[in-house]
Simulated scan of single mutants.
Amino acid sequence: MTVKTRITRSRGYIALLQVEPGKATRESNVLAAMTLYEGTGCWRLVDVRLARHRTPSPYSGSLIAEDFHSSITPASPEDAAFFKSHLREYREDSDGTLRWCTFEGIVRGHPAVNGYTPPRWANFDQAGYFSQAEGLARLKEIQAFWDTYEGDPAKAKIDNPLRQPSESVLRGELYVHKLLAEKGAAPAEPAIDDEYGVGPSL
């Protein structure tokens, strides 16, 4: 049985919803969504299929700050090398702070829309933006996928080669790495799944 969908609009938010009998709009699962930066023509676009563990829910169209902007200031050159070895694309500030986007559930857009980029914290952004017209076109492409999809919506995933671990994941991995080193344990395979990818900054 195929998934039935519809696109709904409210102020600064356009969502692709799963239509289920008896469910109100506010209770419907969000499959993808566009969010406007108020006062600009710049929209973010998220797609639940690009998120490794996220499944469709009424909240799956939300913007998660850590996914768009993770940051760590390494305490030592060794910590910096560890973090960098688990990231493929990041910015390194003059004080050594690393900043990156996880691209978890995020559709990458453009650095600017019609020559304009919204002001961002630390002047950092990798996720990019869409104009309303382009974002809607992408949303309709996503809708076309769902309109022919016959499996379990929770298992619908597509490849996300941009995905990177979040700040909290990397902090946890560094803790485990140091704990093993203190106990004299043999170096283990990286606990971060290969699906994140590992490589140097682009």
Rank of each mutant, 00 (worst) to 15 (best):
P190C: 02
R99G: 12
D193R: 10
P119H: 05
V19M: 07
D147L: 04
E134S: 09
A188G: 12
P200T: 09
G128M: 04
L31W: 08
E78N: 11
T97A: 11
F145C: 09
A15K: 13
S76Y: 06
E182A: 07
Y129W: 06
F68H: 05
V176M: 08
G172T: 05
E89Q: 13
S94E: 15
D47I: 08
I72T: 11
G197H: 01
S85V: 01
N123G: 07
W146Q: 03
A133K: 08
H110E: 11
V19T: 08
R99I: 09
I72R: 03
Y129A: 03
G41F: 07
L36N: 10
S70T: 08
Y196A: 09
S201T: 13
E104D: 14
V30H: 12
D95E: 04
E38W: 10
R54F: 05
S94F: 06
D47A: 04
A144S: 14
R11F: 12
E104A: 10
Q18H: 13
G199R: 03
E104M: 04
I7Q: 09
E66R: 05
R6V: 10
F103E: 06
D147F: 00
I158N: 03
V198M: 10
T2I: 06
P153S: 01
V169L: 13
G199Y: 01
K23C: 06
M1S: 15
Q132I: 12
R108D: 04
E182D: 07
Y196F: 15
F68T: 00
L136S: 00
R52S: 07
T102V: 10
T35Y: 03
P161D: 01
W121G: 03
I106V: 10
L50Y: 02
I192P: 03
G22R: 11
D194K: 13
E78A: 15
A185C: 09
V3C: 11
L63P: 06
R108N: 10
S168L: 09
E78K: 13
V176T: 08
D147N: 12
A154N: 14
N114K: 13
L50S: 02
L16Y: 09
S85I: 03
P153T: 00
F124V: 00
A24Y: 12
R11K: 13
S168E: 10
I14Q: 01
I7H: 06
A75H: 04
N123L: 02
